[in-house]
Computed example of a mutant assay.
Amino acid sequence: MTTVAELLKLKDEQHRTPHTIGPDQMVIDAITLMKKENIGAVLVVQGGKVVGIVSERDYVRKMELEGRASAGTPVSEIMTHDVQTVTSQHTVQQCMNIMTNGRLRHLPVVDDEKLMGLLSIGDLVKEAIAEQRRLIEKMQEYIRGESY
């Protein structure tokens, strides 16, 4: 089973390093960054530690629907504070279980309190499909007598 460390190595250069923002920066900065980088969430980091995450969902629910101003609201007021993280040793299946049970779309990877990366549900689904494809190919080789 593929580990998070292996999965992070497979990510393209643009998405390997997670984008971050400080809790005191304005929401407009977060949504501008998300638009520029074509991403759905930004990790909130303070003193090198993940203290929250801001997603498009947070923006819609906590800004737009409440009529708040993006330019005058700090990220800390709308971010999700209790951020579930995983280590690089977790497997894809473990991460999918965490995301499914927690109804999460993004999962920060933290080793020894150091941010290593960010996984999206899309990253995990793509790898799960690839794992299934590899298993099917091995089974077909076995059936044909090509595998020892």
Results as ranks from 00 to 15, higher is better:
Gly102Asn: 06
Arg68Lys: 14
Val42Gly: 04
Ala30His: 06
Met99Asp: 00
His106Pro: 00
Ser76Cys: 14
Ile78Ala: 06
Asp111Gln: 08
Val54Thr: 04
His90Trp: 07
Ser55Trp: 04
Met96Tyr: 03
Thr32Gly: 13
Glu56Gly: 11
Gly47Glu: 11
Asp58Val: 01
Ser76Phe: 10
Gly67Gln: 14
Gly67Lys: 15
Val92Cys: 00
Val75Tyr: 00
Ile28Asn: 05
Thr87Pro: 08
Glu64Val: 14
Val83Leu: 05
Met79Glu: 03
Leu104Asn: 00
Val45Pro: 02
Thr80Cys: 14
Ile78Asn: 00
Pro74Asp: 08
Ile98Lys: 01
Val45Ser: 07
His81Glu: 09
His81Leu: 13
Thr100Asp: 07
Val50Gln: 00
Asn97Trp: 04
Asn38Gly: 10
Ile78Lys: 01
Ala41Leu: 03
Ser70Asp: 08
Gly47Asp: 13
Val54Asn: 02
Thr87Glu: 09
Val44Phe: 07
Arg68Thr: 06
Ser55Asn: 08
Ser70Lys: 09
Val109Met: 03
Gly52His: 02
Lys49Gly: 09
Gln93Phe: 11
Asp58Met: 04
Val92Arg: 00
Met63Ile: 15
Val51Pro: 03
Asp82His: 15
Ile31Pro: 06
Ala30Ser: 12
Ile39Trp: 03
Gln46Asp: 08
Cys95Glu: 01
Met79Leu: 14
Ala69Val: 12
Asp58Thr: 02
Gln93Arg: 13
Gly102Arg: 04
Ile98Thr: 04
Gln25Glu: 07
His90Glu: 05
Ile31Ala: 14
Met26Leu: 09
Met96Phe: 02
Leu43Ile: 04
Glu64Thr: 13
Asn38Pro: 03
Val92Leu: 02
Val54Phe: 05
Val45Thr: 06
Met63Gln: 09
Val51Thr: 08
Leu65Asp: 07
Val109Tyr: 00
Val54Gln: 02
Gly47Thr: 14
Gln25Thr: 04
Asp58Ala: 05
Thr100Cys: 09
Thr100Glu: 06
Met26Ile: 07
Val83Tyr: 03
Asp82Val: 15
Ser70Asn: 11
Gly40Arg: 03
Val83Asp: 00
Tyr59Phe: 15
Val83Ile: 10
Asp29Gly: 05
Gln93Ala: 11
Val44Lys: 03
Ile28Met: 11
Val27Cys: 09
Gly72Glu: 15
Gln89Leu: 10
Ile98Val: 08
Ile39Glu: 02
Asp58His: 01
Lys62Ile: 07
Met26Gly: 03
Glu66Ile: 15
His81Ser: 13
Val54Tyr: 01
Val86Arg: 01
Val42Phe: 07
Lys62Tyr: 10
Arg68Met: 10
Gly48His: 12
Val27Gln: 06
Lys62Phe: 11
His90Met: 08
Ser70Gln: 10
Lys35His: 15
Gly48Cys: 15
Leu104His: 01
Gly72Trp: 14
Asp29Arg: 06
Val42Ile: 13
Lys36Asp: 06
Ala30Val: 08
Ala41Trp: 00
Met96Ser: 05
Ile31Gln: 10
Glu64Tyr: 14
Val60Glu: 06
Val44Arg: 02
Ile39Asp: 01
Met34Arg: 10
Ile98Asp: 00
Leu65Cys: 15
Asp111His: 09
Val54Gly: 01
Glu64Pro: 09
Met63Asp: 07
Val51Trp: 05
Arg103Ser: 09
Pro108Thr: 02
Glu64Lys: 15
Val86Ala: 07
Val27Phe: 09
